[in-house]
Amino acid sequence: MDFCLTDPPYLVNYRDRSGRSLAGDRVGDWLKPAFAEVHRLLKRDSVCVSFYGWTKVDEFVSAWRAVGFRLSGHLTFPKRYTSSSGLVRYQHESAFVLAKGSPRPPEYLLGDVIDWVYSTNQFHPTQKPVQVLMPLIESFCPVGGVVLDPFAGSASTLVAARLTGRRGLGCELEARMQSVANARLARMRQLMLHTLGVDAVSLAAAA
Rank of each mutant, 00 (worst) to 15 (best):
G24N: 13
C4H: 02
G144I: 12
A66S: 14
Q131V: 12
S179N: 15
L163G: 00
D149L: 07
G53T: 10
S179G: 14
R20N: 04
I114S: 06
A183W: 03
N121P: 06
T120Y: 10
D29G: 02
P8M: 05
R166I: 06
V147R: 00
A161V: 11
V147N: 01
G145N: 04
H194N: 13
L173K: 08
A205S: 14
R104I: 15
V147W: 01
A152C: 12
L5W: 01
A181H: 03
A160Y: 01
S85G: 09
A99E: 10
R15K: 14
D199G: 07
L203D: 11
G24I: 06
Y52M: 04
F151V: 02
A186W: 11
F51G: 03
T82W: 08
L31R: 00
L191C: 15
A186L: 12
V198T: 15
P9Q: 01
M1D: 01
C141R: 01
G153D: 01
G101P: 11
V117S: 05
V147C: 13
K128T: 03
T6S: 03
Y118N: 13
S179T: 12
K79P: 06
W54G: 00
S139R: 09
R176C: 05
D25V: 00
R65F: 05
R17Q: 10
